[in-house]
Simulated scan of single mutants.
Amino acid sequence: MAYRYLGNSGLKISDITYGNWLTHGGQVENEVATACVHAALDHGITTFDTADVYANTVAEQVLGNALKGQRRESLEIFTKVWGATGPKGPNDSGLSRKHILESINGSLRRLGTDYVDLYQAHRYDPETPLEETMLAFADIVRQGKALYIGVSEWTADQLRAGHALASELGIHLISNQPQYSMLWRVIEEEVVPASEDLGISQIVWSPLAQGVLTGKYLPGQPAPEGSRATDAEGSKSVSRYLDDEILTAVQNLRPIAEQVGLSMPQLALAWVLSNPNIASAIIGASRPEQIADNVAASGTTLEQEVLDRIDEAIGHVVERDPSKTDRPTQRPS
């Protein structure tokens, strides 16, 4: 396992992060979830990402239980705030001071820890003054409940504004968590250059494009039984990629992967990690054996000729529009 610094901080994280969106408390039983977490630990993953909104707080609890007995100082535990939780009342979402300060306490209790290494704003909240949000984060850091602050799916301008306020308050905003993969590159034009200037790293989600880059979805054929596309919740996120033109292009990656001695998932993860602004790629798993294949991408270097061949194979179906960064216009309910 390779480790990288997160932003301009002194914190190192594994370049493969284990995340539990859609799986813990949802797609897999708790015993399987625990086995996946233990497999991640066995393969050198030290960084774990969750959010209070996943399975309406249940995912945090499952992760906390799975990590019981581990040396806390050897782990980096990340969670997030913003999404609607609990009974989803008027103050049960967003980035108000009330919601943030109440949410961190709930997350720590469910995770079974006194602090998280990184506390992230899951989305930007246009209905709350940014000053209010960042001051609440600063108070959490000063209380020792979080060591660093991050965000998720913020635009370049939002990152600049948030970083400036964090710096004034004496706290470290060091990361952004956007979607990023061979097929979804909307952060490259604006977010990555801004982040490089600010000393912010990306911890990216969906590096396998919801499983499409594994090559298991074939053009003109039904989705494999038990895949995310056949799951009621998961199908919402994968549907944008289930286009025959995209699926045909993805199959063109198979000989490239074979040439460099990688599986399709390993090639996709190695491609993401070839971007120097990426600190870590988040993987999920419904079976422990998936972990072993994914972590083999850690530390892999792809030559420029391979990167060029990948672009030739799929460049015509890549989404690059920076305006497609996820930007909520109101709080979730």
Rank of each mutant, 00 (worst) to 15 (best):
Y124Q: 03
A156M: 00
L242T: 02
I283M: 05
V186Y: 00
P219F: 08
V58K: 06
S9E: 01
Q202I: 02
Q70D: 09
A84V: 03
G170L: 04
Q251A: 03
Q304N: 11
R160A: 15
E233Y: 10
R142F: 04
L165N: 02
Q177T: 09
W271L: 02
R331M: 01
K80D: 11
A55D: 00
L173G: 00
T46W: 03
G211H: 03
R71M: 12
A59Q: 04
G44D: 13
E73T: 15
E225Q: 14
S286L: 10
G26T: 06
R4Q: 07
V295W: 01
N252Q: 14
K12W: 13
A270K: 00
G199I: 08
A161N: 09
A156G: 06
A279G: 04
L118Q: 05
N30D: 14
S175G: 11
M182K: 02
L198D: 01
D117T: 15
E168A: 10
T248N: 03
D197K: 13
G170V: 05
S9R: 00
S280R: 03
L183Y: 02
N176R: 04
A270Q: 01
I187H: 00
T301D: 15
T248H: 02
S298H: 12
A313M: 13
D52A: 09
E31P: 12
A285C: 13
T325W: 10
L247I: 01
T300Y: 14
G25C: 08
P288Y: 05
R110D: 02
D293Y: 11
W184E: 04
S333Q: 13
E31S: 15
Y124R: 08
N65G: 15
G261V: 11
D139C: 10
G10C: 08
G94C: 05
V192G: 00
L101G: 02
T113V: 14
S235T: 09
T113H: 08
G83Q: 06
R110P: 09
E131V: 14
V212C: 05
R110C: 08
P178F: 06
F137W: 07
A146Y: 02
G170H: 08
T46C: 05
Q259V: 03
P193K: 05
F48Y: 15
L147K: 15
N277V: 05
A59V: 07
Q330E: 13
N20F: 05
L307M: 10
I171H: 01
K68T: 09
G86H: 07
R142H: 13
R228D: 03
A285L: 09
N91V: 06
G112S: 10
P219K: 05
A296I: 06
Q177W: 01
S152F: 11
P87W: 11
S167G: 11
T47F: 07
L11M: 14
Y217Q: 02
Q259H: 14
P207Y: 06
R327F: 07
S201C: 14
A66F: 01
R123M: 10
Y5W: 10
L108W: 00
K145C: 03
A51T: 06
D244N: 15
A313R: 05
S181V: 12
Y217V: 04
L267S: 04
Y18G: 00
E127M: 08
T301H: 13
D42M: 07
I174V: 15
E289F: 12
D311R: 14
V58E: 10
Q158K: 12
I187N: 00
S96N: 01
Y217R: 10
